[in-house]
Nucleic acid binder design. Structure first.
Lengths: 387, 387
DNA sequence: TTGAAAGCGGTACCAG
DNA sequence: CTGGTACCGCTTTCAA
């Protein structure tokens, strides 16, 4: 029998209810002649350790061989007598049997998992993609393991390396990795090895690599946005973006400038601020813009919505009224865009679809690299009123 | 050799670049006398199938037995000759060896994974908690598998059931399950079985169950919020909340009313709207409030920030200026609260800390249910100006 | 300190 | 159709 007790230990709680845990280190040293692992001994000690039923148990319970039980449960069930299938199924149900996935994995040589690597799960961009992926995985009977690279190419590489140990069926990497990082080539090598060993790799927003990829039409979306803004009467543009090495940022920027070029408009370097790919980055960049003096700039394009949102607040904090004194546009059209004031003009990206497509690509029969391009659509809102 | 080709198939892409995939179904039927699985045949067919190195390979490469290799790599490395440890490590590095976690799992009887079940990964509340959990898991060398219950108790139960197959070391369930749902007892039974088999269960916001729990001080936070609002001069309160069965909503509401009671203020049922626990729910509820006519109501408390945010937009859409015509307060203090206008008064919950604590609880040596209480703090902002 | 070998829970051949 | 059995990759006991 094991002692169970609900004990509380405060964690800076105001109602801090004492900081004690009932300790019980009576580690009964057990002696046992039989050859058994400490694990199993421990389990016995714990008493109630009702170990989950194994295939063996099911076989015994239903009076058939374990081979037959296995077949009845999943294999080509065609070759098992109806009555036996029924017995086995009944036994399995009775014992509440659930196959040990690790065992299956090792026996079959493939797991039922998909690994997902994102930059930051807190960022709506990634959580939306993750949602799509998890949903699709669910349908395919895969479970998703998630790792966060925290925007570090190095960590990303480490993660992928360690992921190998899990032998996932597919690895999906979402995030705008930094081109030219030292870890790039090793990462590619790593993924190629994984792939040639039968794994499936899908990248989000990283084409030009020998892997399946889901791309977002950043260039086209940004170009259309630029044109739309020009159409609304905007003339002088400011830009908030990430470093050149961030592919997503680079693409959106290039699409945007290309769109402006048509109207013979250039962006003054003075009004192009490089910053982090985060809300905070957007905020800081906007302050910077204000500090530089944005005389004449009538609209600022931030390469994504979280940055645009931060920028909007920064402008307001600086005494400017967004949508009146300065227009703002973002990219992604994440949820909160409609709840900020003024509502944010953006380029809609069906993020959950990105996730779904990635999973579909990963699960497709064809194991040659495929490419899915997700289209985008400009959504004009109050942050960019006609001028 | 296998053909590789990058092919594109549009997905509603505007630049829809043809919808073809180079097909190549030349399934060379191979005949092979030796006893080999189709799997391995397939791998051969794929050619480049460089299978990952196994412990066996490492042992061979370093000229020791596989037992010694295993010990050198992780076991009680004390009993392995230094020189051999070195050889093995070198060989492992050279072969780029990564232990097969499923194999380890089955041999050791425990996996290196933690399972996390959330309601909706897109909701900042959950993604913040997830971030904390993933971070903590990372440190502990666990990888996190994630499942989404989509706010359905039934799905939650299904997930937990299926999770068993993965034999995770810990299961963390975040989300305010609906009390009294049919699936409640089965869920508890399921978790108890899992726990008595050696697994660790941690619940977020579901105390009173025989599992470790991280609770958020909903009652205290809401009570303080109520007092603070009263202190600011508010007199007539409206509330946007979820059904009574949602524990989190219920607790926050009860704390809030308790706080008001002190000031002898009651909330008129007329101004208490029940809705979904989502942004949309908040929006709809606010419209409903407006429709009912909120004569005299000077502040509305929504039981969480996403609802409050939606409500704010709804009020604005109805021609009211939030923070002037009507004050609004939420709960959680998720990121976007500072970027809406007016910035949202809320009760700050250190969500990442919730995740961290959950993981810590799960990993603690003591396997009796523990309890961690996360304290909260009122943050007054522009949405509730003094009256 | 080491190697041989017995599992861990399953799968899939092979020979009935 | 079924059972026996040889693995899968790794850990751990046992005997050397």
């Amino acid at each position: 029998m094991i002692l169970k007790a609900i004990v509380a230990f405060g964690e800076g709680s105001p109602a801090g209810s004492g900081d004690g845990r009932i300790a019980d280190d009576t580690m009964a040293t057990m002696v046992d002649g039989s050859r058994r692992s400490p694990e199993s001994l421990l389990r016995d000690r714990l008493g109630d350790g009702q170990q989950p039923a194994t295939l063996h148990d099911v076989a015994r319970e239903s009076g058939v061989s374990i081979a037959t039980a296995s077949r009845a449960l999943n294999g080509s069930s065609r070759n098992v007598r109806e009555s036996n299938v029924a017995r086995v199924l009944a036994a399995a149900a009775k014992l509440d049997y659930e196959p040990h996935l690790s065992a299956q994995a090792i026996a079959r040589g493939s797991t039922k998992t998909a690994a997902l690597v994102v930059n930051d799960i807190n960022d709506p961009y990634f959580s939306s993609i993750a949602a799509g992926i998890i949903e699709a995985a669910e349908v395919a009977g895969l479970i998703v393991t998630m790792a966060v690279s925290d925007r570090s190419p190095q960590r990303e590489l480490d993660i992928v390396r360690r992921l190998r140990g899990h032998r996932p069926q597919v690895i999906i990497i979402a995030g705008s990795r930094i081109d030219g990082a030292d870890s790039r080539d090793p990462l590619i090598a790593e993924l190629e090895a994984y792939q040639s060993a039968g794994g499936r790799v899908v990248l989000v927003s990283q084409p030009d690599l020998p892997f399946s990829t889901v791309t977002i039409d950043n260039v086209g979306g940004a170009r259309q946005l630029a044109r739309a803004l020009v159409g609304l009467g905007y003339q002088r543009f400011g830009v908030i973006r990430a470093v050149e090495e961030f592919r997503t940022s680079r693409e959106r920027l290039s699409g945007f400038t290309s769109g402006l070029r048509r109207a013979r408009i250039r962006i003054d370097d003075r009004y192009s601020v490089v910053t982090e790919f985060t809300r905070r980055g957007g905020y800081d960049a906007a302050r910077e813009l204000v500090a530089r003096g944005l005389d004449g700039v009538d609209v600022v394009f931030a390469v994504n919505d979280v940055m645009a949102t931060g920028a909007m607040t920064a402008f307001r904090d600086a005494g400017l009224v967004p949508g009146r004194d300065i227009a703002i546009a973002g990219f992604d059209d994440i949820g909160p865009t409609v709840d900020v004031t003024p509502s944010l003009t953006s380029v809609a990206v069906p993020l959950d679809k990105v996730g779904l497509s990635a999973m579909r690509l990963a699960l497709s029969d064809d194991d040659r690299p495929g490419l899915v391009r997700i289209s985008t659509k400009v959504v004009l809102r109050e942050s960019t009123p006609p001028r």
